[in-house]
Structure formats: C-alpha cells, structure tokens
Amino acid sequence: MNDNIKQIKDPVLSIRNLSVSYDKGKYAVKDVSVDIKRNSVTAIMGPSGCGKSTLLRAINRMHELYENIETTGTLILNGKDITNMPTIQLRRMAGMVFQRPNPFPTMSIYDNVIAGYKLNGISLKRSEKDEIVERSLRDVTLWDEVKDTLYKKGTFLSGGQQQRLCIARALAFDPEVILLDEPTSALDPIATAKIEDLLVTLKENYTIILVTHNMSQAARISDYSMFMYLGELVEYGKTKDMFTKPRDRRTEEYLTGKFG
C-alpha cells in the first residue's frame, strides 16, 4: 500500500487512514490512504457496494449531515487540512457531479451555472456573472448549444446536456478537484462519449476523480485507477499497469469479469 502513496509527487489530494461506517463497527470504507495526482483523471472501480460512492462523498464531507455516519482520517487538499474546514470553503475547492443529472428545476440555465454563488449569497457584478457563465459553459462545450436559451429552465435540456450543465455548475467555483459519481450511467452512448471527451480536456485545468462501473470507460479516460473491494483499497496505480499486469488476484478477477 505504501508503494502506492510514494509514487506520486506533489499530490493535489492526500487521503490518510480514511474510514467510514454507516453502522458502528461496520466499515463501508476501511483505512484508505491514497495520493491523487494533479491534473489527472483517477478512476475508482470495484463491484457494487464496495464503497466507491462512500469514499468519493467522504472527500467533500457530504456525510456530515447524517448523524449515523462516522468518518475518521485526514484529508489534505492542496496542502490544506480540509477535515475541519468550513464546508462552503471546502466545497468550492471540491466540486461534485452526481449519477443522475440534477439541475435545479426552478432555475434557468444561467442561474444553474452560478447557483453556487446565488444560493450562498455571494453577490457578483452582472459582468462577472456573465463571464463565469460563459466560461463554465464553454468549458463543458455547452455554450454554443444554449447561448440563445440561457434563460430557459435547465430541466428542458436533454439528459446529456443537463449533465454537462451540472459539470459547469461545479466548474463555476473554479475548484481544485471535481468528484464525479458514475456521471454517465444514466446517459446514452453518444452523450457518454461527449462527457468522456470533456473530462479528458478538463484535466488540463482540474483534477478529476471518477467513480465508474464501466471498466472500458476507466481504461479509456483515466490515468490512474483504484480498485476497491469490501471497503478496502486493494490496488492503486497507473491505469495502464493495472489493466495489463494487476498485482492483486482480486483486481485481476474483477478486470477479467469473474465478479462484479
């Protein structure tokens, strides 16, 4: 395990001894320590229920709202300990995109992009807003498709467009990392391909952590991969290495379709 940590210099995110339990004593994530490389796509793989979502959500501390969930360990993002940082500050640095596109149904496309500012009561000048909206929508290649309908509800867009809008909403805060939990599992192949291309371009400016069920997706777009099993991080390394010569028997069995 320690080998995994050492191979990455100047990581954007360091996770140390992270454990999460929903029921006392039952760990959904068990003592995970890992460093995430800056400006890369890191995939989290593993069979259903192995703790991928739990790990991802622990990074921006989504669990805090639920009293029954216990999280221990340390998270260092960009050199700062985020374990006790105010959530608004943390979530500006770590944006999140969910499995199902979830634009705010009461808001226009424009307002959805700057929702983070609006809902937190951060006031911006009109020109600043316009700039953020255009930059974020251009980043997700949605600008040309929606620039004439910015004031229509975001929910009128297609599923793939909605998901790109949700990515734009996360980008509007200019985060360090973007956490995505199976962002394409509700989309058709064409929309999926667009999002995959997008993630590859986005890594120039952001670090991307992607939970995926889809091994070929991980192989196509990720630079690093984690394989989790029963809450443990079994294997972590360059995606190429993991797919060609997995070190752990369980990784190999998963990748060859023996389970999951």
Partner: peptide
C-alpha cells in the same frame, strides 16, 4: 438529488 446538489455547493442547510 436536488437537495444534495445544493449541499455539494456548500450551501448551509
């Protein structure tokens, strides 16, 4: 998911 979208943006409860 709508609620979580807002929480993930750091919006207080």
């Amino acid at each position: 998911t709508i609620k979580e979208a807002a929480l993930a943006l750091g919006v207080p409860y």
